[in-house]
Design a binder for these strands. Structure first.
Lengths: 100, 100
DNA sequence: TTCGTGTTGACTATTTATGTCAAAGGTAAT
DNA sequence: ATTACCTTTGACATAAATAGTCAACACGAA
């Protein structure tokens, strides 16, 4: 289940754009956008930004979803996923503070 | 800075094994293990498990480090990395509970 | 029918990741 | 100074994952 794909599909529909039109605007093939919205292919960060712009949506939130989806993809079916996230978080906070 | 690499190097030394010997035991090229310990190449999960076994070390902890490193790699230089981790964590907890 | 919609699959190309190998340079003992 | 280890390095080949292209399909509305 790709929540990012669903969100971007909704946003596209709210913007009143067909797949083809949206795809043309962001300069990719329709097939790819279709697959991305349905979670069959991954979005790239650049594309998410382009689409956010096109749909006049909050790009920060979409990027956060994009990243979290990437992270979850790495951790799927891992017994220690949650623990790994905790460790990663600690590390990230440390790096942010100490600028390492 | 690869903390996993450093840890595995220490464990190897504590086990009194040279790079060559360790590499032979886990059936990979010395060059690769050398690069992995210094963070120049990524470990695979399977290799981490093999090494944990060889060094008689706690594989769970090493796997957690391995995963967290993977996650951090995806997030490096991202402005919203921390926010993304929070979202991912929430999702993961939800999935774990609901078994989705 | 024709038009616009989304979906599918086969195919190619490109980019990353992984593996192999030979050589270099260090250190210590003989 | 040669032998015997060790680790590191880089160039190269191979394999796998990802991304892009294209044509055709199915559906419903005009």
């Amino acid at each position: 289940m790709s929540t990012l794909g669903l969100k971007l599909r909704e946003l596209r529909e709210q913007a009143g754009l067909s797949l083809r039109k949206a795809a043309t605007q962001v300069d990719i093939d329709v097939a790819i956008l279709s697959k991305m919205e349905r979670g069959e292919r991954k979005f790239s960060k650049e594309l998410v930004l382009k689409l956010a712009d096109l749909y006049k949506a909050d790009s920060d939130k979409l990027i956060i979803d994009f990243l979290s989806e990437k992270v979850l993809y790495e951790l799927e079916d891992e017994d220690f996923g949650l623990e790994a996230l905790k460790v990663a978080e600690k590390q990230l906070k440390y790096r942010k503070q100490k600028n390492v």
